[in-house]
Amino acid sequence: MDMLIDAGIVIGALAVSAALGALLVSVVLRWVEPEGYAPGVLRGGTWIGVLERLAITGATIAGYPEAVAVVLAVKGLGRYPELRATGTDQRAKATERFIIGTLASYLWAGLIGVLATLLF
C-alpha cells in the first residue's frame, strides 16, 4: 500500500510541476512583458519547459539534484545558436525571456520536487 501512495505522490508531483508550471511561467512572462513578445523566436519553448520541469522534479524526488545542472547545460547549449542568430534587439528580448522563463520554471520544479520528498 505504501508503494501505491508513493507512486501517487510522484505522479501527482510530476503532473503539478509540468501543468501548473506552464501556467506559472506564462503568467510570469506576461507580467514581465505585458506588451507581448515576437512569436517564433524561440520555438518549442512550452514543450521544452514541460520536459525540463519533469526532469528537474523527477531528479529532485530521486535524490539526484546534480541532474539539474545537466538539464540546464543541455537547454543552454541547445538554445545558444538560436539566440545568437536573432537580430540584436530581438536577441536581447529573447535572451531575457529565456532567462526569466528558465528560472521561473526551475524554481517551480525544484519546489514541487522538494515538497514531494517531504511527503515520503
Results as ranks from 00 to 15, higher is better:
D2A: 10
D2L: 11
M3R: 12
L4V: 14
L4R: 07
I5Q: 06
I5F: 10
D6T: 13
G8C: 09
G8S: 13
G8E: 06
I9K: 10
I9R: 09
A13K: 05
A13S: 12
A13Y: 09
L14R: 03
L14Q: 02
L14P: 00
A15E: 05
V16S: 00
S17E: 04
S17A: 13
S17G: 12
A18L: 15
A18N: 03
L20D: 06
G21A: 13
L24H: 07
L24D: 06
L24R: 10
V25F: 07
V25D: 03
S26T: 15
S26L: 09
V27Y: 08
V28Y: 07
V28C: 06
R30I: 11
R30N: 14
V32N: 06
V32M: 15
V32W: 12
E33H: 13
E35I: 08
E35L: 14
G36S: 08
G36R: 05
G36L: 11
Y37T: 12
Y37K: 03
A38K: 14
A38V: 13
P39F: 13
G40P: 05
V41N: 01
V41E: 04
V41D: 01
L42I: 13
L42M: 10
R43Y: 08
G44C: 09
G44F: 14
G45C: 15
G45Q: 08
T46M: 03
T46F: 05
T46C: 00
T46H: 01
W47T: 14
W47H: 04
W47V: 15
I48V: 15
I48W: 07
G49D: 06
V50R: 00
E52Q: 11
E52C: 12
E52H: 07
R53Q: 13
R53Y: 06
R53V: 11
R53C: 04
R53S: 05
R53L: 08
R53A: 09
L54S: 00
L54W: 04
A55V: 02
A55C: 05
I56T: 03
G58D: 02
A59G: 05
A59H: 00
A59M: 03
A59Y: 03
A59S: 09
A59K: 00
T60V: 15
T60A: 11
I61C: 03
I61A: 02
I61L: 09
A62R: 00
A62T: 01
G63W: 08
G63Y: 07
E66N: 06
A67N: 01
A67G: 04
A69F: 13
A69K: 04
V70H: 01
V70Q: 00
V71S: 00
A73C: 13
A73Q: 08
